[in-house]
Design a binder for these strands. Structure first.
Lengths: 125, 125
DNA sequence: ATATCTGTTATATTTATATTATAACAGTTT
DNA sequence: AAACTGTTATAATATAAATATAACAGATAT
């Protein structure tokens, strides 16, 4: 698995790890029941504290993406299509919120945004 | 000018002020050469430190939205708002394209995206 | 000229969050 | 038993945001 972290992009390290692993799961680079790197080994590879990796894993477990068993390790949870869709809907929601903020600040009307939306969603036929 | 700040929405106060003033400029509530409230008076109104207001003003000046003169005050800069709006529309377009890609890949219908759009854009009062 | 606005700068402190180091503990596997 | 796993607790550090306070400097009206 290929995780690149950056100290300077505003996103906390634990969140960068979380996203990288989600991505690996979505792309099927990590398959169901695959074991994740141990908190200590990944921490070692990334030259960070294992507590930071643990935090990422804890979040992933809360989200239902992995299962962790003390003494054994962390494993990719059986894929749940609904979960994946939820995740993608969340991504879309984040983008729409950004659009909302920009439009509000820049005095761009809802109609103008809708128009762009229409153009992009309809031009692919 | 009507600025409402919140301590608990994740956005730093200086950024909330920044956005509120940008919005006032875009909506023409604040016109070219209009004087902004002094850092101290706005800080007083909002019950925050004048340094926080100063930071917001500094950012606005860096962005070319206002001009500040020591001893006189801060003033809305002459600006080509249409040009900025074009930039912002492009940003929005990029986001919509990302949304389009995600929705296609994840089998999320246009209707579902529209629904999210509605929810977020209607949260306003 | 001086009082009173304006912004500027410097210092120190507080708060919250992220991250770290370290140590001890607990379950699993070989 | 040794060597892996994860867990927990504590204390320390780093950073950004925001604060309080004080002193300084330019603009302006009276």
């Amino acid at each position: 698995m290929n995780i690149i972290i950056s100290n300077s992009d505003g996103m906390p390290i634990f969140e960068q790890i979380e996203n990288a692993i989600k991505q690996a799961i979505f792309s099927n680079e990590l398959k169901e029941e695959d074991m994740l790197p141990s908190v200590r080994s990944l921490a070692n590879d990334l030259k960070i504290s294992f507590l930071t990796v643990k935090r990422a894993y804890d979040e992933l477990e809360r989200g239902g993406f992995i299962k962790t068993v003390q003494g054994k390790g962390s494993f990719v949870a059986p894929k749940n299509l609904e979960l994946i869709k939820e995740e993608k809907l969340k991504e879309i929601q984040d983008y729409i919120e950004k659009i909302y903020t920009i439009s509000k600040i820049s005095n761009i009307s809802e109609e103008e945004v809708k128009e762009l939306f229409k153009i992009i969603f309809e031009e692919e036929f």
